[in-house]
């Protein structure tokens, strides 16, 4: 995305090129142009641009893509951590 760049080397996006059938769906759904098609296979061209929305993984017909997607705000992640540790959170603060 023009003018915006987040942290490097954090995205969990993985692509198993062996499974890829080159349908190009991932290029279609990715809002950050992370993928490129080379020799009828998708490959990850810009992993650091990935925001882990999960669109590519969910729309891949051969399950070749994996990514840890989910809530991305601090409050949401704190609540998630609290839930994992079975500590009741403060409630409120999360978006809907």
């Amino acid at each position: 995305m023009k003018g915006f760049r987040y942290l490097s080397n954090v995205a969990t996006l993985e692509l198993d090129q062996g499974r890829c059938i080159g349908c190009g769906r991932c290029l279609e759904v990715c809002p950050h142009q992370v993928f490129v098609l080379e020799a009828r296979r998708a490959c990850i061209g810009d992993r650091d641009a990935c925001m882990e929305c999960g669109a590519c993984a969910g729309n891949c017909p051969v399950d070749a893509i994996s990514v840890d997607s989910g809530v991305g705000c601090a409050t949401g992640i704190i609540n998630e951590w609290l839930r994992e540790k079975k500590i009741p959170g403060l409630g409120g603060g999360s978006c809907g």
Binding site: M1, V10, A74
Partner: peptide, 23 residues
């Protein structure tokens, strides 16, 4: 700092793993 960090939930370019690392 905390409240700006929380804004990551509203953006369309921050990754969850990045936010976790920041936190």
């Amino acid at each position: 700092s905390f409240y700006t960090l929380n804004f990551t939930g509203c953006t369309t370019y921050t990754s969850r793993s990045g936010v976790k690392k920041e936190m």
